[in-house]
């Protein structure tokens, strides 16, 4: 506890055991965080962003079809302004294309988004891939 008098604070000289317990738990937590990040810094080398995508669902919406997908970044560095292009295949060539830009896809993380097509994608091949990014 602290004693305040005329805006002077003096820490009590005989603290409760609870104060020490809290202090020690906090110290362990801070050391844990430091250890974790130091471990990350030393063990994991930096790998450039690497993308893959999975399609979650396809729904009919007003004026077209929505394809919801998730873009994973398997690299350890973050990519910014990731441009994603989706192509609806009609036979060998793409019959329709749509694109979207993600602000960030952090390293070892994912970001969700959706592409809107005019043609019905059900039963057809959809190719979604990242076509470019910048370093944050």
């Amino acid at each position: 506890m602290t004693i305040t008098s005329k805006s002077r604070h003096t820490e009590s000289s005989k603290p409760d055991w609870l104060e020490w317990a809290t202090g020690i738990v906090s110290a362990l937590l801070v050391l844990g965080i430091v250890g974790w990040i130091a471990g990350q810094a030393m063990l994991h080398q930096e790998t450039p962003p690497e993308f893959r995508s999975t399609i979650h669902s396809t729904q009919a919406v007003a004026g077209g079809f929505r394809v919801e997908f998730e873009l994973f970044n398997d690299g350890s560095t973050t990519a910014a302004a990731v441009e994603v292009r989706g192509e609806l295949m009609g036979g060998a060539a793409a019959s329709e294309a749509a694109q979207v830009t993600f602000d960030y896809v952090p390293g070892k993380s994912s970001a969700r988004g959706a592409l809107l097509f005019a043609e019905d994608p059900v039963g057809r091949d959809i190719r979604i891939r990242a076509v470019g990014y910048t370093e944050p």
Binding site: T2, T10, E11, P15, W20, G23, S26, V30
Partner: peptide, 26 residues
């Protein structure tokens, strides 16, 4: 600063560090 905290006499400095600063940071 005005309102700064002080330790009572005879208390080692690291006491306040463990009891107040580290929990505060967490």
């Amino acid at each position: 600063f005005r309102g700064a905290h002080q330790l009572s006499r005879g208390t080692p400095r690291w006491h306040a560090f463990v009891r107040f600063t580290l929990p505060g940071y967490v």
